[in-house]
Computed example of a mutant assay.
Amino acid sequence: MHRLFAELEPSVTVTEQNLADRVRYILRSNTFDATELERLQREAVPSSDENATAEDAAPQLAEQPANLDAAVNTPVSVDSNDDGTVAQELEMEHMRSTLDEAILETRSTPLENRPRLPRIALSKLNRAIVRALNPILVTYLEASRDLCETDSILFGAALAVCRIIVPKLSTAGRTTGQSSAISAWRTRIEERIAKARALNGRLICFRSGNTRLRIVRTVRMAFAGKNISLSQPDIMQKLTECIDDLKQTIAA
């Protein structure tokens, strides 16, 4: 495929890998339908003999998709360089399919519903995965039409990296994350209200004459650091003030 492309477009410099990535992107993104692809193939593939018949040219057209698939699906192993050699080979085919799915999913997902991405450790293997995906992104970025699409491509690439490193990564949208965040702060406030009500109830019990050890201990803890003694004459007034403060805190 690369030799044929070099003959058709000698002025364009492109690597075999980049050409295979471009073909894969065109086929998967459905840029052209089957009829248009067939027409382009007939126009692009040169005939070795001007007098060749259509029957002679047909096998060449039939063989080209197989050659394209073979070039696109050829696995490539990537090793890290600066951080040392990674012992495990990376399956590029799996990475490309994960990247395609992530970018397609991101493009069809509203910004507010994108999943939250976890922090990824900067290990040798993780760095190698990022280096392997960077060249594949060139095809998508060159085909980007505006900044929004570029943002979707980059977020899709980040999502693909997370899914490769963390296979069981949750795909829940940001709405779910917001719901959990709201429930978290709501839970904290409800816990503070419950503690204030419990303390208020024991202060009221003590003011009513309940001198059980547990009640007295709670009242002393409430007045700790305030230089207030339970034996001072105005203790009932202090209790009333503290009870009113707690009621206002609960209401707020």
Score class of each variant (00 low, 15 high):
E50C: 00
H94D: 12
I136C: 03
V166D: 02
D79V: 05
T98S: 10
L90F: 09
C242N: 08
R28P: 15
I103H: 03
P75I: 00
I243G: 09
A121K: 14
E50I: 00
D146T: 07
L199Y: 12
S77H: 14
N18Q: 10
K247Y: 14
L104F: 14
V76F: 04
K195E: 11
C162A: 15
D56K: 01
L37Y: 15
L68G: 10
R192H: 05
L68P: 00
S48K: 08
N113L: 14
Q232K: 09
P135A: 03
I182G: 03
E16I: 06
R220H: 05
E112Q: 09
K195P: 03
N227V: 07
Q178K: 15
L37I: 11
P10H: 02
S179M: 03
G84P: 15
V86H: 09
I193E: 04
R127N: 11
A34D: 14
R220V: 02
K238Y: 08
Q17H: 09
V45N: 04
I189M: 00
Q41D: 06
M1L: 12
A58Y: 09
V138H: 11
A181Q: 15
P167G: 13
L141D: 00
I228P: 00
G173Q: 04
T31N: 09
L90P: 08
S208C: 04
E91N: 01
I103C: 04
E190I: 01
L213E: 10
S152N: 14
S11A: 15
M236Q: 15
E55N: 03
S179T: 05
L125A: 03
A6W: 09
R119Y: 06
P46Y: 03
E16S: 07
Q64D: 07
Q17V: 07
N113M: 14
G225P: 15
L169I: 14
A194F: 05
M92R: 13
V72G: 03
N30D: 13
L133I: 01
D83G: 13
S29R: 15
E36N: 13
L40W: 07
L68K: 04
S180G: 12
V216K: 06
D56A: 06
T211N: 10
P46C: 05
R42S: 02
L154C: 10
C242D: 07
D21P: 03
L141W: 02
P59N: 11
T211R: 09
L68T: 05
A52C: 01
L8P: 02
L133H: 00
I204T: 04
R145F: 12
A54S: 06
V219K: 02
A58Q: 11
C242S: 10
T176K: 15
R197K: 10
R217E: 08
E91D: 03
Q88K: 13
C205Q: 08
L104N: 13
S47T: 07
V216Q: 00
T240Y: 15
L137K: 02
A158P: 04
A252K: 12
A252Y: 07
T171N: 11
R197M: 08
R202T: 00
S144P: 01
G156A: 05
E149K: 07
E36L: 14
T176V: 13
D244T: 10
A62I: 04
A181D: 13
N200W: 15
V219E: 05
N126C: 00
R212D: 01
S48E: 12
L137M: 12
P10C: 00
D151Y: 02
D151A: 06
E89R: 13
T171E: 09
Q248N: 07
V161I: 00
C162W: 07
G84W: 14
